[in-house]
Amino acid sequence: MPLVDEPERRRGQGYYTACSIRITVLGGSLEVGDGGFTDWTARLSGDAKERCLVSCLATERLVDCAGR
């Protein structure tokens, strides 16, 4: 699985605070998931040291993969 650095990315900026991931299939033509670090728990708890890493897979897009 290749790891590609995209420092100029616009996707997820303002939502993910630091690094983020994008999960694609079919040679990168279909995005099926994403994730990254957020500041939700730090803001809710008032603790700047709090860290939260979230991710998801879009099951409806995985179904699309089966049909291709």
Rank of each mutant, 00 (worst) to 15 (best):
R10K: 15
L62R: 04
G14Y: 04
R43I: 10
D39L: 08
V32S: 00
K49I: 01
L62A: 08
S45Q: 12
C19I: 06
G28Q: 10
G67N: 12
C52I: 01
A66H: 11
L62Y: 04
L53V: 15
K49Q: 11
R10C: 05
V63A: 12
G36Y: 05
D64V: 01
S45D: 04
R22G: 10
E6G: 00
W40D: 14
L3C: 06
V54L: 06
T24P: 02
A48Q: 09
A66R: 12
G28Y: 04
T17P: 02
R61V: 02
F37D: 05
M1C: 08
E60F: 03
Y15S: 12
V4M: 01
R9L: 06
E6H: 06
P2Y: 07
C52T: 12
T38A: 07
G28E: 05
R61A: 00
L53Y: 15
W40C: 07
Y16P: 04
G35D: 01
G12L: 07
Y16N: 05
L44N: 01
G35L: 03
C65E: 06
S29L: 01
E6A: 08
Y16S: 04
P2D: 14
G27F: 00
A42L: 11
L44P: 02
L44I: 08
G35Q: 06
R68D: 00
R51Q: 14
R51L: 12
P2A: 13
W40M: 15
V63I: 10
S55H: 15
A66F: 13
P2H: 10
T41E: 14
D5W: 15
I21G: 07
S55E: 13
T24G: 04
C52E: 08
T41M: 09
R61N: 03
R43V: 13
G46Y: 08
S45L: 10
D34R: 00
V54N: 02
Y16C: 06
A18V: 11
E60T: 11
C52L: 07
Q13I: 13
Q13S: 10
V54G: 14
T41N: 07
D39H: 09
G28F: 08
D39M: 07
G67M: 07
G14L: 00
M1G: 13
K49L: 02
G12W: 04
A48I: 12
C56N: 10
G12D: 09
L53F: 15
P2F: 04
R51M: 09
D34I: 02
C19P: 03
C19K: 10
D47Y: 02
G33S: 06
C65W: 02
S20V: 03
E6C: 04
L44H: 11
F37W: 07
C19A: 10
D5E: 15
A58I: 09
L57I: 15
R10H: 08
C65D: 03
Y15E: 14
I23H: 01
L3A: 05
L57Y: 14
T17Y: 01
Y15R: 12
K49A: 13
E8D: 13
D64L: 05
D34Y: 05
R51H: 09
D47L: 06
L26F: 03
E50H: 12
L57V: 15
D39P: 01
A42S: 13
L62V: 14
A66N: 08
R10I: 09
C52W: 02
R61W: 05
E8N: 13
R51V: 10
A58Q: 00
R22S: 13
T59G: 06
G12P: 01
R11T: 11
S20I: 05
E60V: 03
T24L: 08
E6S: 09
